[in-house]
Each structure stands twice: as C-alpha cells, then as structure tokens.
Design a protein around this nucleic acid. Structure first.
Lengths: 187, 187, 187, 187
DNA sequence: TATGAATGAGTTTTCATTCAT
DNA sequence: GATGAATGAAAACTCATTCAT
C-alpha cells in the first residue's frame, strides 16, 4: 500500500475512533507509520486529507450500491437490491459509512463535494427508479429527492442504532427493514 | 441573558456554522462578547460546554416532542403528533436538531449522555406507543428500538435534505412524510 | 519597557548579530524574555515585526538627522549639520543604521515602506537644501535625488568600513568626510 | 551550462528576487531544474553555495573593474576608468553587484571571504592609485582605505537609487558622478 | 551522476488556561 | 464576578538532508 493510502486509512480510522475534532497530524503520522513531513508530499493541509478520504469513501460506496444490480429485474427487486446494498455497505464498512453520513451535511464539506457524483452514478439510478415507480402508479407521487432521502434515511438511521448496539442486524431484521422502507413509499 | 447562556448560545452557533472541530475558545469569547477568563467561572473546559449545550438541546427537544400530546387520542393520532413534533422541532430549531443528530452518535459524546433521559421521558412515550401498537396487531412485530430508530430516522434524514435545500417542506410534503413513516411500520 | 518593545529590540539585536536569514522566533522569544505566544498579541508574523522595527528605526533616524538644524544658518552650515547628524547617528546606533541601510534596498521591504516619510520629513529638508544651493549657483545642477543619494552614499559607505574596523572615525576623519561630500557636489 | 552553474545562477536569481532569507533549497532546485539530491554532488550545504556565488561574483567584478585600464594613462584617466568600470558593472550586472554590496558587510559572510583578493587584485590597483595621487599632492591626505571606501560608496549608493528607479543613468548623469567622486577627494 | 520520495529536527503558529487587576 | 495580557504545551508546517534506485 502506498504512503498516501496509509495516510488516508489512518485518517479514516482516527475520525472513526475519536471524531474529526480530535484528529491531529501527529496521530495520523504515528498511525500511518510515516514521517511527519511525508504527508505534505501528498496533501497540503488537513482539510485536503479529509476531503480525499471523503471522496474515496463516496466512490467506494457508489460502487458497492450497484453491486449485482440488474436493470431488467422487477421494480421491487431492484429497490430491494439498492437498499440491501446500502445496508450491507454500512455493515461491512462502518467507518466509511459513518464518515460519509456525518460529513455529508456538515459545514466542513463543501457543497460541491457533497453533491459529487460517483463513477457509477448510483444517485441517478435510484432517482430514476423512483420516477419509474411513480409513473407505474406503484410509488406515491412526491418530490423524488424527498423520496430518495426518505428511504436513504431509514437505512442510515438503522445502521447508527446498530453501531451503538441497540439491536442486532440479522436476516429477520434486514427483511423487516427492506419491507418497511418499501411500504413507506407505496401509494 | 446571563453570561453563561451567552456562552452556550455562541457555542451552538459556532458548531452550526463551522463544525465542532473548528470551534475555539477565542471564537466563543468573541461571539459571546465575554472576556476570555469569564468562561472558567462556568465551565472548566470545552467538553463541558459542549456537553452542557447538548443536554440543554436534548431537554428542549424532549419538551417539544410531547407538545400537545394527548395520551387518550388514537394510536395513529398519537403517532402523528410525535412525528410532527419532531419534524417541527427540526424546522424551528435547526441548530439544536443538527447538533443533537450529529453528536448523538459521535465518539465525542459519552454513552451516558447519549442515553440520557429528558425530563419528560419522551423516549419512553414513543417506545410504549410502539409496543402498544404491536400488541394491538397494528404495528409490525419487530424490535421496538429498531422500530423507533426507523421512524426517527425518516424524520432526521428528511430534515437534513431540507436544510441543504434539496426540497421545500410545506403542508403537502409534511403529510407525505407522516404517512410514509406510519405505513413503514404497519403490519 | 513594554513586551512589544522588548520583542522589537530583541529582533533588531538578532538581525545585527546574525543577519535576517537566521533570525528565528525562538531566538526572539529567548532574547526578549517573553513567552512564545506573546508575540502574536502584537504581530501576526515575522515580516510584521521586521517592518515595525524598520519603521521605528527610520523614525529614530529621521528625528536624529534634524537635531540642531538651524534653517537660518548658511547653506554650508546646514549641509554640514545634516551630514554630521547622519554620520553620528550611524556611529551611535550602528544596529539601526545598518538595518535601515541593508533593508531599504532589499526585496524584503515593500516600496511603500522604503519611501515612507518620517515625522520630521528630513528627506524634504535635504532635497530642498540641494535645490536652494543649485538656485544660488553653489551646488552643481543635477537631479536632486541623484545628488541626495550621492552625499547620503558617502556617509553610508564610510560607516560600513568603520564598522568592520578598516579605519577609525575621529575628529580628523570626520572633517575630511564632511569636506569631501561638500566638494563632491559643488559646481 | 553545467548543473553546478545552473544551481549557482538560480541561487543568485533567487537572492535578487526574494532576498537571502527566503531562498530555500526547494526553490533553488525548481529554478535550476535539477533534482533535489543533485546539489549535494557539488555543495555540502547552503552556505557553501552562497559563498561560491559570492566568490564568483567578486571574481567577475574584479575582472570587470580593470577592463581597459591603462597603467600609463594619467592619474585622472585611470581614476575615471576605475570608477566608470565599477558603475558599468553595476548597470550591466545588477544581481551580482547588489549581492556583493549587501553581503560584504553582512554577518553571513566570513571576514576572510570579505577580504578576499580577486585574481586581478583590483583593490590593490585602486589603493596604490590613491597613494600615488596623494604623493603627487593631487589627492588629499587621508587614510587610503577611507578614501577608497568614499569613492566606492558614491558608486554603490548611486546604483541603488538607480535600481529602484529614482533617476535614470545616462551619459550626463554618469559624467556628473565621475566628476563628483573625483572632486570629493582632491586636495 | 542524477533523481525525488521520505524523513525528522526545527520553526512557526495556535489556543486552552492562568492570574494579576 | 469579569477581564484580557501573558503563557507554553501542543499542533501545524517547513525544509535541509539522506538514500535507494
């Protein structure tokens, strides 16, 4: 792994463990096992590192969200795939997920970065699925962004409770969550 | 307003404007218009201020959540009241809401504080409403905390999209959200 | 003496002893006997300190240059007074003099600062003396700034040789220098 | 041009543009278009580079000072030749001239280096010219080093004013300066 | 020789905290 | 209680130097 990736990984770990406000360069250096000057070969300040970590996490999530997505499957199947992918991403990569969730709406991240498209344009896939469902009379008529935010929010919120061990997330719970989010937007 | 409240209000403002990680004592002093030593008459360090702000915000929200709550109204009415109260709290007090939402799951806040009960015990009210609905066969059987988190998460997520102006929140949208969250947990 | 003046005095000493390029903040702190943060209550960076020191030295020199200047004395007497004042300033305050001389034509100092007028406007006094002498046919016709620079430069150069102990500067030498500079600009 | 010369030229440029105190190795590397390690094949540290640049500049100036010098010409002609050569050197090579002038009296340069003789021993030529003039009763009796410094200083000072565009230096001005410096040391 | 990524000692800067008023 | 100048430990950042290629 390159020094740059070491630095980014260490930063993500630290944000997860202690929160952004207590991440210092010296903690990053130690965790990443690099010299203190090395970081400046790759980033010019802390904000740049955080932004780079954010971008990478968003790319990673965007890729994961469309795993196994079959555009020819039924609306419901496609919906379930997307929601399940989001949920499993959160389960597999809690650090990435929490970081994205926390900083997407923080003043620390610029609007441009918040609204960035990932390579795979997963946002567009979801939005057009919503619009398609609305045209077919299956999904309730409402602002598609609102609808997107709604089903996205269910997953996020559930994951946060899971992370602090309010409840387990096994097969039963997962099915309940997928159904709940599907029902929430039906006509 | 007392100096103490000036300091807490300034802190909340700064967290909202710049994020916790860039809140410094000197910014607080300037915004609160107090001398730099004054703060130590009330708080012994920054964490104490943030915790105090958090507690106050939680109290405020807890109070607001039960506004107009009629324990004898129908299950659906009570549910809508609670959800609407959460939503309006977020609309009226975005700084408090966002702060609570962000830091409730951050390593910065201690688990005891996260799990604090507000004066009015609004959490208990919601949880017992869920259990009651499940006993009546109206609300789907699932972990009550999971269910709580689910409906809570819908409101949070919707508010965050609203804050960054993804969509407006007027009467129509609000009704849609309340219905969506209700449907999501029905059997 | 105030902390600010302590800092400025220490800076001037260090520039004289080691040259600007080897003046560090920590040397300044130690020499000025102040805490490392104190400096930032008065200056926001090193360039600001150096500029402040420069301004003060210029004011000091400007004041000294006109000491005992009698506007009603003869042209020659006035000329000698100004030249002697410059020379004695250099002898009494070598640190100030060398600093001004070195940095007046260095890229480190901004043109505005280089061209600053001191309180007493000594530059104007000298320039008008030159013009007056030219009108009277005593001083040779030439660009007044060139003429100013010429007599100024004689003193500067002599002082630099004196500082490195090429020769002493006692009464004899001083009279020779004053005469030399006077003769150099006669018709 | 060799790498070594690239490095020295870049160093001189940077000193002229930004002043010695802000010359860093990385600026030198970039300007000289060499790799950062390359410098250590030629110099062991920054002071060595600066000293080498100084020596070279002094050699260059020493050579230039005696251009067209005719030992059999009249005292006045020889004096004018030396002064004019110094002036034209400053006009043609402002970077070298300023660097020599600034650092000859700076604590950065060692006394040995300051007192170095150039190949052509121009200093000796000037000093003996002064002594010769004094023996002939043309030049005033005074310390020969003082006298040297005096006429040298006129040229230096005039050039510095010229560099900051206080006045032009064309044929008229140049003649005035040569005459002024000659008159300044006559009996 | 030439290179430039990596380094860490040293420098600059920030900022929570103290304390005399 | 209220203040803010002074502080110094810690954080951010720079930059000369090394070394494997």
């Amino acid at each position: 792994m390159s020094k740059k990736q070491d630095i980014m990984a260490a930063t993500l770990d630290l944000i997860h463990e202690e929160g952004l406000q207590s991440v210092t360069f010296s903690k990053i250096f130690k965790k990443a096992n690099v010299g203190s000057g090395t970081i400046y070969n790759y980033f010019s300040n802390k904000e740049e590192i955080v932004n780079a970590v954010y971008k990478e996490a968003r790319m990673h999530m965007g890729e994961h969200l469309l795993q196994g997505y079959d555009p020819f499957a039924s609306l419901y199947e496609r919906f379930k795939c997307l929601q399940l992918n989001r949920l499993t991403f959160g389960i597999l990569y809690p650090k990435e997920f929490l970081f994205i969730d926390n900083f997407s709406f923080s003043p620390y991240i610029s609007p441009e970065l918040r609204n960035m498209d990932d390579l795979h344009n997963s946002r567009e896939v979801i939005l057009s699925l919503i619009v398609e469902g609305q045209k077919q009379g299956i999904i309730k008529e409402m602002d598609s962004h609102l609808c997107h935010q709604l089903i996205h929010g269910i997953i996020s919120s559930i994951l946060k409770g899971y992370y602090v061990e309010k409840y387990p997330l096994n097969e039963t719970q997962i099915q309940q969550i997928l159904e709940a989010s599907w029902k929430s937007i039906l006509v």
